[in-house]
């Protein structure tokens, strides 16, 4: 193995890691806001990929142009899921933790079933797009353009999120609600509205990721499941609720995956990610950047 191949795979690992961060950040945002893990997160990604695919197939809209549309659609979807399901799940008095887990799990199963029913289990792909299949050579290192753009979108999204949380009124309301959902009611903030917007925002971010992913991944009803576990590990690795922990977690996951693939057979590449997760939480039970 030459130095060049090592740099090559680390570079692709880094790009993929930034995308993992973008997939995971919505999960981290929602968790930070209201201590709920959305176990249908992978299915949010799945419908975003399908939405991109259908915009491409019926209206010939390139995934890059479709991305903002898909993000907007997912925003609405996320808010609706909060208002119809999660709002009631967090009110449960008995077995609160279980209810959150299984109500969103149930939603995931329904979404998967609906996707099979309406879209069939066939594998789809966006056959030609502006970026699909193109690569850039940087000093002998080949980088695929879709992943490169995905990484740029991810960095921009994290930058935007940072600005949003720290500089806008809604962002401050979000922070305040996350610190004390009871106290914000006293200053006239409607907790439910903030939560609904938080779910919308979280879903919009994974929608953005889904639109980019559809350029270079097959689209099928179970596609979310394979990325969901990586997203949970990414968020937990960074520390639940830490939005920027998700960014760091994504990069670590991408790099570890690339490194594992160099050492072990490719079919075992996820073992490295899972092992690193276990190692980190055994040493730091709250993840890398999680607070108590």
């Amino acid at each position: 193995m030459t130095a060049e191949t090592i740099i090559q795979s680390l570079a692709s690992g880094l790009l993929m890691g930034l995308l993992y961060g973008l997939i995971a950040v919505g999960l981290a945002l929602i968790f930070g806001l209201m201590d709920v893990v959305n176990f249908a997160h992978g299915e949010f990604l799945m419908i975003a990929m399908y939405a991109t695919f259908f915009l491409f197939a019926f209206f010939a809209i390139d995934p890059l142009l479709a991305a903002p549309l898909v993000a907007a659609a997912l925003f609405v979807f996320g808010a609706v899921v909060y208002l119809l399901i999660v709002r009631f799940a967090v009110r449960a008095k008995a077995n609160a933790g279980m209810v959150q887990i299984f109500s969103t799990f149930g939603l995931a199963i329904v979404m998967r079933g609906l996707a099979q029913f309406f879209f069939t289990p066939d594998y789809r792909s966006v056959t030609h797009s502006w970026l699909g299949g193109k690569t850039i050579s940087l000093g002998g290192i080949f980088l695929p353009e879709p992943q490169l753009v995905g990484a740029a979108v991810s960095i921009a999204a994290f930058g935007g999120l940072y600005f949003f949380i720290n500089r806008t009124d809604f962002g401050r309301a979000l922070e305040a609600t996350r610190e004390d959902a009871g106290a914000v009611a006293l200053v006239g903030i409607d907790k439910n509205r903030v939560f609904a917007l938080g779910w919308g925002l979280g879903a919009a971010l994974v929608g953005l990721a889904g639109a980019i992913m559809s350029i270079f991944f097959y689209i099928y009803p179970d596609v979310g499941a394979s990325f969901a576990l990586i997203a949970y590990v990414t968020v937990a690795l960074g520390g639940f609720g830490s939005v920027f922990g998700a960014f760091a977690g994504g990069i670590i996951v991408g790099l570890v995956e690339a490194t594992t693939a160099m050492i072990l057979p490719p079919s075992l590449k996820s073992v490295g990610i899972y092992a690193v997760y276990l190692l980190v939480v055994f040493v730091r039970p709250r993840g890398l950047f999680g607070s108590i």
Binding site: I85, F88, A89, A92, K93, A94, N95, A96, M98, V99, F102, S103, F105, G106, L107, A108, I109, V110, M111, R112, G113, L114, A115, Q116, F117, T120, P121, P221
Partner: peptide
């Protein structure tokens, strides 16, 4: 006849039960 219907029924049941009767 229609793939995925079993998942839809199953998932809906789980959502409804966990929301309406969290104690089972």
């Amino acid at each position: 006849s229609g793939r995925g219907v079993d998942l839809i029924v199953y998932g809906t049941l789980i959502v409804l039960i966990s929301l309406a009767r969290p104690q089972g």
